[in-house]
Simulated assay, not measured.
Amino acid sequence: MATQDGFLSVPSNAPEGGRPAHHDRGGGSRDRRPATTRSGVSTGGSPLRNPSDGISWDGIGFVLLRTDVGMGGEGDAVGEARVRCGSGGADPGTCSTRESATVGRGSGFGRMSTFATTDTSLRHDGSMIDPIAPVVPPGRMKQTRQPDFTLPGNMHLRPWQESDAQILVQSCLDPDIQHWNRPGRLTTDTAREKIERWKLRWQDEEAAIWAVTPADDAPVGLIGLADLDLPGGSGEFVYWLLPAGRGRGAMVNATLAVSRWAFDTLGLHRLRITHSVNNTASCRVATQAGFAWEGTMRSALLHADGWHDEHLHARIQGDTGPA
């Protein structure tokens, strides 16, 4: 690995030791000095003070790694804003870096904005290890059209359309949907904007949302994966049904259809369903769709009547169960 322009930028006004006051994104006085690269770590010309081994700075994401290749050949140094690291001490583990890195100095911390922008991993001695490939390659989802699905009982799944906006407005007035899903209130205009955002989130590979429709094509429900993590191979379900769509098994069938697509076509590894422990209807959907109950998350979500514990259900690639 090499730096892009061979320079390391360090803010000269960094605080003395400890946690940086902010993440420097430009501006202010900077020391710029030539940098070299040793064993995949970009280093510059001044020795580093070694504050600690393997410390993670909560809320900012900087991690200090003990290396033998810091500035001047000794000291500490490399982490980054989005980082996953092993423990410190005798078995320091590894640290995955992405996009940018930080370098510690005796006078504080600075951002190495010239660090290589591809994912890579460093051992604490500065040597390289093989990166973990994304579970789902970027682009796989947005390069395809959002599919339609036919469900048992003459029900269907299709993307939401601008003409569905009024039904989305009505869904926010249903007391059960409002209590369990907390959608707030929508006007026709804000409902259209929400539908447009769902289209953009498909293109950004962040979510996949469908309307649940009977034969007349007027939506009676919603289902989707609203928290997609393609590199990590996971997603979390969101769903609701209006009274006209309840009592016919539509949501179980919809969950199975989206799960098949997520596992077999998109290539995810793990899908989650979470719900209030008091939401027995959602619990039945999860169980009947083959999502094993994994535990209870205490005081996990704030509803209108207070904090609710939540059940966590999940299904992973290769699980046996209803298809």
Rank of each mutant, 00 (worst) to 15 (best):
D148L: 08
S163M: 06
P183T: 12
P243Q: 06
D217G: 07
A215F: 06
L151D: 07
F237P: 08
M155S: 11
M155D: 10
W160E: 02
G235S: 04
Q143H: 14
D148I: 03
A218K: 12
A215K: 10
S163N: 06
E193C: 09
S234H: 09
A191R: 00
S171F: 14
T190Y: 05
D229E: 12
H156T: 11
G249C: 07
A218I: 15
L241Y: 03
A208R: 02
P152S: 13
G249M: 05
G245T: 09
D217V: 12
P243H: 03
R185D: 12
W202Q: 07
V238R: 12
A250W: 10
L225W: 06
R123Y: 14
E236S: 14
T213C: 11
K194I: 11
I195F: 02
D130W: 04
A218C: 04
A226T: 12
L173Y: 11
G126F: 07
A133T: 05
T188I: 15
G247D: 06
Q161V: 10
Q170L: 13
V252E: 06
R246E: 10
A244H: 08
D164A: 14
A254I: 11
M128D: 12
A250D: 01
G139W: 03
A254R: 05
P152N: 08
P214R: 00
L225K: 04
T187F: 08
Q166Y: 09
G184V: 04
A218F: 02
I209F: 04
A208E: 01
H156A: 12
D229N: 15
